[in-house]
Design a protein around this nucleic acid. Structure first.
Length: 568
RNA sequence: GUCUCUAUGGUUCAAUGGAUAGAACACAGGCCUCCGAAGCCUGGGAUGCAGGUUCGAUUCCUGCUAGGGACACCA
């Protein structure tokens, strides 16, 4: 719709003889009463022409009312200091509403992606290490982006980029050989292995020889040492059940590919050759590096002084490999601490000619979660795992269901769905770049701007729809109240919100929108009877509104990875 | 030290350079003989400091203060 208005304004500008700079925008006015859209076109043009903006705005408004916007707008008004406000015509809105219902969930498929192959990398768990809330964020954001991009016509695939290679495994191998107790490990593999890892990290600070031992073990692993390979495989086998549990309990779509770092083992030499050929690789302090200081990115170690490979090298191989499969864009849903490293990776790829446009590799960064008492660290024992969080949430939800809706069927399962919704929404409603402070009371809040509010709103709407007898969409719907129109106008914005979310990769735009939409629906619900309305046309019109709202809520929630419930 | 991100009511967060800075939680009131009160309505209360660009700055630029993160053999 916004694009459409921009075009309309352009046309009007042309006929009026103003140069179109293309610099103006169309946005939402600050208040519902002002209309549906607003533009600053007159303000921008006036700057170039040196004419009073109000005069231009008035001139444009008149032109738009009588000609270009005649079919779409009921009102086009110039307002000080020179804004133009547009109000959509009821006929047009009703047409939009009917389209929503007729096209079911396909109406927002803007074909934005045009079938472009795109890869989203998210949820990068590490073998032999417990998951923490950071993994929750990448999984939730990545999953939502996957669904949104898929919905808007991209051909999307996902990849985990498992952390299963590197010196850390050397350290772990060393620790395992030194202190590992097979019995304890068999019982609780991940936590026991992590204890070993934490211990060797701590002790190697005092005793550098331990660190050297770890590096030597990794080198052996890379060279194919049989014992180390076997152990490494064991670590991986122990870790998978937990990853799978997270997919299941979180209802995250399992990744299409699990190309871990080890997957690129045989693909690294070619990259090294390439770097050499282009003269990018230089020796320094015994290591092979790429000097990026002229880009203010410091120095990137490609091969360590002991001959072992680095994460960076694997990341280079990763991009090149995926690109060779035809992915036009690769999105890295990775926390913001890796900005520097990814910037180095992208810059080297650019130097190699692998990346020709910044769109090809995008760091979809997100801030990290901290607890009110301070930042969370993997090293300390006080880390909350995703599973624990989810379990606690589910228990809380169950209590509330017992209290509010004791007759509900299948309480256990619904409690999981609500708990998941609460946690996912809490994550997604925030601008992903900002660090968020994790508070139990809020993440598990069931009131206000929270997941359960949206699920509840959907359930309310569905509750009405279950009880209705007549189904027909009235040929000429009638709406008498402002609450109805506000709801319709909000729904008309859905498809552009989807596009905006897909283009910017900010899921909180969609989350925020759904919250506003739910608010409009609840206003409508509160004030205007639907089933109790005696007049057939009015009742059918309101049922139509209810159905459309439920449909958008369901669709939007599902794009965020949140289940829309019939009852709760 | 260099780079980078952040600073908005009591708290947690929004705001493509636009109009009276918007919510939620908390707090104070009100609304279930009426489609689900996990809801709705009303109220108070905020842009770290100092400059600059602009018709207009929470947003862009500079400096300062405070906090986070990253800066070659961790990933």
């Amino acid at each position: 719709m916004k694009e459409r208005i921009v075009l309309i304004i352009k046309k009007a500008l042309q006929t009026l003889g103003y140069a179109d700079s293309g610099a103006f925008g169309v946005s939402d006015p600050p208040d519902d009463s002002l209309g549906d859209y607003a533009s600053n076109a007159a303000l921008i043009v006036s700057k170039q022409v040196g004419k009073n903006p109000m005069a231009i705005a008035a001139e444009l408004a008149l032109r738009l009312t009588d000609f270009e916007g005649k079919e779409i707008f009921s009102k086009v008004q110039a307002v000080a200091p020179g804004f133009i406000n547009f109000t959509l015509a009821p006929v047009f809105l009703i047409k939009e509403l009917k389209t929503v219902l007729r096209q079911k969930n396909k109406y927002a498929r803007a074909n934005l992606g045009a079938g472009q192959k795109i890869l989203v990398e998210y949820f990068q768990p590490n073998i032999a290490k417990p998951l923490h809330l950071g993994h929750l964020r990448t999984a939730i954001i990545g999953d939502a982006l996957f669904k949104i991009l898929n919905f808007t016509g991209f051909k999307v695939k996902s990849d985990t980029h498992l952390g299963d290679w590197g010196t850390q495994f050397g350290l772990l191998l060393a620790a395992y050989k030194l202190w590992g107790k097979p019995d304890a490990i068999a019982k609780d593999p991940i936590n026991e292995l992590n204890k070993l890892y934490v211990r060797i990290n701590a002790e190697s600070e005092k005793n550098p020889a331990l660190r050297e031992k770890g590096k030597a073990e990794f080198l052996k692993l890379e060279k194919g040492d049989e014992e180390n390979r076997k152990l490494w495989q064991k670590f991986a086998d122990w870790s998978w059940p937990e990853f799978k549990a997270v997919y299941k309990f979180l209802q995250i779509r399992p990744a299409d590919n699990n190309w871990g770092e080890s997957f690129y083992e045989d693909k690294m030499p070619a990259v090294v050759e390439k770097l050499k050929k282009q003269g990018l690789l230089i020796s320094s302090e015994g290591a092979q590096i790429v000097d990026l200081s002229r880009f203010k990115l410091g120095v990137a170690v490609i091969i360590k002084s002991d001959g072992a490979t680095t994460y960076l090298l694997r990341d280079l191989a990763t991009f090149i490999y995926r690109k060779s499969l035809g992915f036009k864009r690769q999105l890295y849903v990775v926390d913001t601490r890796q900005s520097h490293s990814l910037a180095q990776t992208f810059k080297i790829l650019e130097c190699l000619g692998e990346i020709t446009s910044p769109q090809e590799a995008v760091h979809v960064d997100f801030g990290y979660l901290s607890l009110p008492e301070g930042a969370m660290s993997t090293r300390r024992g006080t880390v909350i795992g995703p599973m624990e969080l989810l379990r606690r949430a589910q228990e809380e939800v169950l209590k509330i269901i017992q209290q509010k809706n004791p007759d509900l069927q299948d309480k256990e399962n619904i409690a999981w769905q609500v708990a998941r919704g609460a946690i996912k929404y809490f994550d997604l409603v925030h601008n992903r770049k900002s660090d968020i402070v994790f508070r139990w009371e809020e993440a598990l809040s069931f009131e206000g701007n929270a997941g359960p509010y949206l699920q509840y709103t959907h359930a309310r709407a569905k509750s009405i729809l279950r009880k209705k007898d007549d189904v027909d969409i009235p040929r000429e719907p009638r709406f008498l109240f402002p609450e109805e129109w506000l709801l319709i106008r909000m729904m008309a914005k859905y498809s552009e919100v989807i596009s905006e979310t897909a283009l910017t990769l900010y899921p909180h735009y969609l989350a925020e929108y759904l919250f506003l939409l739910a608010g409009k629906f609840n206003n409508f619900y509160q004030k205007i009877p639907v089933l109790k309305e005696k007049d057939n046309t009015l009742r059918a019109s309101r049922l139509m509104l209810t159905a459309a709202a439920a449909q958008i809520l369901k669709n939007g929630l599902e794009l965020l990875g949140i289940e829309a419930l019939e009852e709760m």
